[in-house]
Design a protein around this nucleic acid. Structure first.
Lengths: 304, 304
DNA sequence: CTGAAAGCGCTTACAG
DNA sequence: CTGAAAGCGCTTACAG
């Protein structure tokens, strides 16, 4: 029985029992530390509960995401955790995975072009309230001219975060100016490159809430390039709290999303549904909390 | 046949054919961008060749690595790509995965306490020659007092890189001083924290070759904290070329390991062996090339 | 309570 | 050349 070299064949068991011990994890961008941390958390919890992780990365390509889902489905996973590529359509994804396999969507809403009975759970961040907190933090430090910096306006998380920014400004009786929301690709490189657009504005802003940490870190580099000193003569906040945020220069004030904990949470939510498919559909929106560090400095005394 | 809802059951096919279409990928630290990029490359190539990736992360824990390998083995993967946790023992790993399943070890040598017939392929970086090139680059810029900064001396890659550093110094007739090799955990945080140790040395160094990019980026922050200007009054090189290296301030001169390409290469090597198990055991050492950016600045004119 | 048989969904070797 | 049967390694329902 237990003699040399025997290895249990779980595929055979799966075939017989009609219950799989694998969970598919499809990630839009594994080279982004936010999602890498998320994946680590997912794998940690799945492993602890005796499941194995089937990985697929879509690299933000919708075509590749379809292909990856199709390939993973052939392994009949017990469930799927999907961090969708931009502009993923719900109907199309339903076509790939059917109604039987539990699905948990992370971070980004699927586009629902037509109403459908397609049921899936959702885990996301409270982007709007979070960005409102970040903006209010800068307001409380005396800033009045605050830019929303970075991100693609057509992504759902960017739209939500922009709304939170506007909520905070309106509460402070500051009129929202569309040109004070600067669009960049959500990467460090692009955020760095567009830093000069900040100072084309008149009057010049004294602070920026950034779409996410990658953008904030890029903007800090761009400011330094332009002879400014983030955390001293310009205030910045990020969003996500990736590991680098704590150790950059200056350390970044940001909204803590704790991506690894979100990964563990996603795995738990999915496994709950696997255990009990008749649960009502859930949408969990996680609050994010302000982590204060040095990058959000007080506003200079008003010179007006 | 192709009517609504039918999904091919690959587990059944695997059972019958005795050939699996899954490959296990075990990563020591997925939250490190170097390995996240590597994983992306592996998944990219495996996906293109019709394989699916079974992910496991060990978080540098040998115990967890055993557990993960055991769990993945039950899925009878066609092969295994292992980026081992520190101090992984070859005999122990052989015990987990047996002699049948092709194994490709990435990046770090396994510890072979006793000679054994355990066969596996290896893909690694030419750490010694690479660090020699980095050091010679600083020498060619006029530096003579160069520190080797960061990393754990008992990791194989750190040992190899230290040897390359020493090769270069000896070629330049500079005596190697043990106290000029400063040990830190290979993280940004730790590298930042130990920066002051550089200036406890007498005479003070003018440059440092860093164990890897994370360490180099941390050291740059530490230098800035101490009022120094990396790339202006202190020269730095990294190792790996992670995406951040190009966009930090100043951009980091580093040895380009191209982790995503290494991932693709690892997948290809493994699939070659899967296709042909009788191939002789291979050990592929990839040369790394100098990528010049601004962090490696010329030495100041000698004041002696 | 124990043990032999049936069957999960495929593929392959064999009979017609 | 086509089609029915056997079998991969498990688990479960059933017979003894």
């Amino acid at each position: 029985m237990q003699r040399q070299g025997y290895v249990y064949n779980r595929a055979a068991a799966t075939l017989r029992q009609h219950v799989s011990t694998a969970v598919a994890l499809v990630i839009n961008d594994l080279s982004n530390p936010f999602f890498a941390e998320f994946a680590t958390g997912v794998d940690e919890t799945l492993g602890a509960k005796g499941y194995v992780t089937l990985l697929g990365s879509s690299n933000e390509s919708f075509a590749r995401q379809r292909q990856v889902l199709g390939s993973l489905m052939e392994h009949h996973p017990a469930g799927i955790i999907l961090s969708p590529a931009e502009a993923s359509d719900a109907t199309d994804i339903e076509l790939m995975i059917g109604q039987q396999t539990p699905l948990l969507v992370f971070n980004r809403a699927l586009i629902e072009t037509q109403p459908t009975g397609f049921g899936y759970d959702f885990l996301g961040l409270d982007n709007r309230a979070g960005m409102c907190v970040a903006t209010k933090h800068l307001l409380s430090l005396g800033h009045r001219r605050i830019v929303f910096y970075g991100g693609h306006a057509d992504s759902s998380s960017c739209r939500e975060r922009r709304l939170g920014y506007q909520d905070a400004l309106r509460d402070a009786n500051i009129t929202v100016d569309e040109s004070w929301m600067i669009e960049t690709a959500p990467t460090r490189l692009e955020a760095n490159a567009h830093a000069d657009e900040l100072f084309a504005l008149n009057p010049a802003p004294t602070a920026a809430v950034c779409y996410n940490d990658a953008v904030a870190l890029g903007l800090m580099l761009g400011l330094a390039r332009l002879g400014r000193h983030p955390g001293a003569d310009f205030a910045i906040t990020g969003f996500d709290n990736i590991p680098e945020a704590a150790v950059d220069n200056p350390p970044l004030t940001t909204m803590n999303a704790d991506p690894r904990a979100r990964g563990r949470q996603a795995a738990e939510l999915l496994l709950q549904r696997v255990a009990n498919p008749s649960l009502p559909r859930r949408s969990v929106i996680v609050p994010v909390q302000l982590t204060q560090r040095e990058s959000a400095s007080p506003a200079p005394p008003t010179s007006a």
